[in-house]
Write a protein that binds this DNA or RNA. Structure first.
Lengths: 123, 123
DNA sequence: GTTGCTGCAAAAAGTTTGCAGGACG
DNA sequence: CGTCCTGCAAACTTTTTGCAGCAAC
């Protein structure tokens, strides 16, 4: 049976309240502020479990560590800043993104868009 | 000064002739077939250099090792098969993908689309 | 001949696993 | 009270780095 532990709730809370996708280390550090004895392994175990249950989603871009964010259903457009390497989740999902023209035989179930550029802080 | 070595040309050739994005290990294995003594470190060094010069681009998706493919300019739509975990590069880039509606302050320089689903082989 | 590139091996970074004790229901 | 979960440390995997010899110019 699945148990409701302090660590689990805390990690979920950290991801849920973040305004952008966080790396496992960032998640662990933030959780450590509230619960110093929490281990990095516990963070990874929860991330894996949450990702499997689709409560969080992984987002990453080449050359950077993976990030995780709360899966609130419609955030599928992300912005990667080439200057500071931070990732941002953008709302305003466009409706017409999934291209209709996929080769014969491919079945599209979902999509994700990554934009590259410069964020306001680095402008 | 930059030198033109056998290993460098070979790695570039492997990526260039692949029909889908390859992981560093796949690249190294294919290169080893032609040049058995090539080291994995050399593969990584070339990948890094090529990525910096934008001759190849990294593509990855959560939970999978990174992949690299030849940067021929317009391949920005990829397809990840949820069954076999292979990645495919789709041509037919749609023109209207980059959403115009980004928050104030963000400057978009490029984009990339990842589609998820089932590939023909796994269908 | 110089000097950058390579292969090897060791190191570093990131992630997973084994295990004994503690927390949850 | 039985188990699942946790923290710790060790094991693994993936990527990077140091260095002596080789190869390209």
């Amino acid at each position: 049976m699945k148990r409701n532990t302090q660590q689990g709730s805390l990690i979920l809370e950290v991801i849920k309240s973040a305004k952008r996708p966080l790396t496992p280390l960032e998640i662990h550090q933030r959780a450590s502020n509230m619960y110093p004895r929490i281990g990095i392994a516990t963070t990874y175990r929860h991330l894996k479990a949450l990702a499997e249950k689709n409560r969080v989603v992984g987002v990453d871009y080449p050359g950077q560590p993976p990030r995780y964010e709360w899966a609130d259903g419609e955030d599928k457009v992300h912005f990667a800043c080439r200057s500071c390497d931070k990732l941002f989740a953008l709302k305003d999902t466009t409706e017409d993104i999934p291209p209709a023209k996929v080769p014969k035989g491919f079945t599209v179930q979902g999509f994700e868009v990554m934009l590259y550029g410069v964020c306001p802080e680095c402008e």
